[in-house]
Design a protein around this nucleic acid. Structure first.
Lengths: 343, 343
DNA sequence: TTGTATGCGTTATCAC
DNA sequence: GTGATAACGCATACAA
């Protein structure tokens, strides 16, 4: 008839309260809202907790309060530099708040995303950040059932689950192509890898910009679903040169591809931009220091992560933004690799 | 005298059990160990859970069982490519297990690391993975109090908190320098950024290798605590060339610095390797496709992450490795940028 | 294989 | 500002 269960042996709130000479609930309040206590009790609880080395039990807290202070984050890749910037923004913003980040990796799989969303659901996060706008219907219904603020990031679109922070990949690619055209280039190719939905929209921006200038030729598009690498950029431009050797410029789906293409041009002694203009996408740090420096579309990845967190945390506190969809835009960073034809 | 508290409104195990016509504990067993149930009950619980859309409450589970299925991971940076590879290994390995990863970012601050460790302590993770071997005494005592398997990664050293997977940064740098010396280079510089403890050990490897060959000259070392970028590589080699214009080769603390140095050489029409040999560290993917291709020290970052997880999960299950410290070594990838002098 | 009784450590509720 | 009481939803221990 002993107690049925071993105590964990850890210091509990009750012990702290006893040593401080207060009730457990008073001690509990100390950790959540110290100002609610009289100064004397505040000090007694503080020193008792320190003396005993009290560590709160988050599981008990979550169970009793029916909430957590976790923001779940779903991203498709950890290797891609693009997401590390977003993550940095997310972690930076979370540091100023009382929320901690729980990160999960979907590996560009919307089924994996579904699974992870269910896992998050079981944890009752206070908020959620998901990448992109191409969730499965099943995923959407899980999100809607989660009953917490949700931010979709990286893109914007017409039908937010809740909130959105991103930019138009279509517009950005359209602008990149238009820039090359305005510089006097005509036969402009597209190099794409890892053709996820965002990349597809970039490709569509390329297509429409080329069509608008009556320059579209499907032979100038080379894409592969294979994940992006610098080396792959070399392979892709090699493919393109086989098909249409008279190509004058390329728009790359991202900067790694652009760098790989540049290296391949160096290898073949094709001068950039005289014989080949190159435009990248994302404006990773190295683009400005390459030789020649590489033109790219700068996106506000860090800010995207930061804003997602601030929007979600504000929404948790009941302060929803006036406009649920935030367009962070983009900026074309024009550099040597796309100097005007014949200049 | 009504109930004092609003129920969450969510489906609980009890509801599932009731619909299935079994006791709650039987339903509970279904989710943790379905094989323990008779086939008929197994099916009834399964369909009841599906019908009600049951989502287990992880907080309740953690509180009742006194454990979680979370492995905490502490890394110093999300932006650094090196860690994205490690993380990929960690996430890949965790996917095969029942554990989920909780990631936290120390930003190269050992004080931040201390704070995060306390936060993890409150969550009672099943295991822990921390980067490096330079924790504060306070951090070490928190880790020792956590009473779960812990793997230190990226480095190996004499005094593991529990387990270790890594390699010797000192030996790797020593080998890189020795390689350049063996290729006939004599005036060899060192370019360093983000001089955290691992980078310091690389620098020490450089120093000792140069001293062993009686080639050491402190003027050939250029370092900065500033975080690594490609652009910074250009700045550092520019500095070095100012100090010792007759420098023949450089060992870079990482590949970004090496790439930046290469670009700067291109800009100045210094031929690599004829007038300047370059060796990087980490062997990121782009090193092989640069023009000229860049020599680097390959490290097993992915495997490091993977092994850390398998070691920790095995230890959770009581299967500790025979040897707590695993040296994954390194491999010098010799490429064009360090071809023998005068060849 | 299944069920009963009980406890995990905390906080919500209401009263003082 | 403080405290008594009763949950929160699940798993452990033990018995059957």
């Amino acid at each position: 008839m002993e107690r049925k269960r071993a105590k964990s042996g850890e210091i509990r709130l009750t012990e702290v309260a006893k040593l401080a000479g207060v009730s457990p609930i008073t001690a509990s309040r100390f950790f959540r809202n110290p100002e609610a206590l009289s100064i004397s009790k505040r000090e007694r609880v503080a020193s008792a907790a320190k003396e005993l080395g009290y560590v709160p039990n988050l599981a008990a807290r979550a169970l009793a309060s029916q909430r957590t202070e976790v923001i779940g984050v779903l991203i498709p890749s950890l290797t891609n530099n693009v997401f590390s910037d977003v993550l940095r923004g997310i972690y930076d913003a979370s540091e100023g708040s009382r929320y901690s980040i729980q990160l999960a990796n979907t590996r560009y799989s919307i089924l994996q995303e579904e699974k992870l969303l269910r896992l998050f659901q079981a944890q009752k996060p206070a908020g959620l950040i998901v990448t992109g706008i191409d969730q499965t219907p099943e995923s959407r219904s899980v999100m809607e059932a989660m009953n917490c603020p949700i931010a979709q990031i990286m893109e914007i679109g017409p039908d937010p689950v809740d909130m959105m922070v991103g930019f138009s990949h279509y517009d950005a690619a359209f602008a990149a192509v238009s820039h090359l055209i305005s510089q006097g280039f005509r036969r402009i190719g597209f190099l794409g890898a890892q053709m996820d939905p965002r990349m597809q929209r970039r490709l569509q921006g390329y297509r429409d910009a080329m069509k608008a200038a009556s320059l579209f030729d499907p032979r100038n598009i080379v894409t592969t679903p294979v994940p992006t690498t610098v080396t792959l950029g070399g392979t892709l431009i090699a493919d393109l040169l086989l098909r249409t050797p008279d190509i004058e410029g390329i728009v790359c789906v991202n900067d790694d591809i652009a760098l790989g293409a540049l290296f391949e041009c160096q290898r073949r002694h094709i001068s950039v931009p005289e014989d080949m203009a190159i435009v990248g996408f994302n404006d990773l740090e190295f683009m400005a220091s390459a030789v020649p420096s590489l033109t790219s579309v700068r996106t506000n990845r860090y800010e995207m992560g930061r804003r997602a967190v601030t929007m979600v945390t504000a929404a948790i506190d009941g302060n929803r933004p006036p406009e649920p969809v935030v367009d962070l835009g983009f900026e074309l960073m024009v550099r040597e690799s796309s100097s005007a034809r014949g200049v």
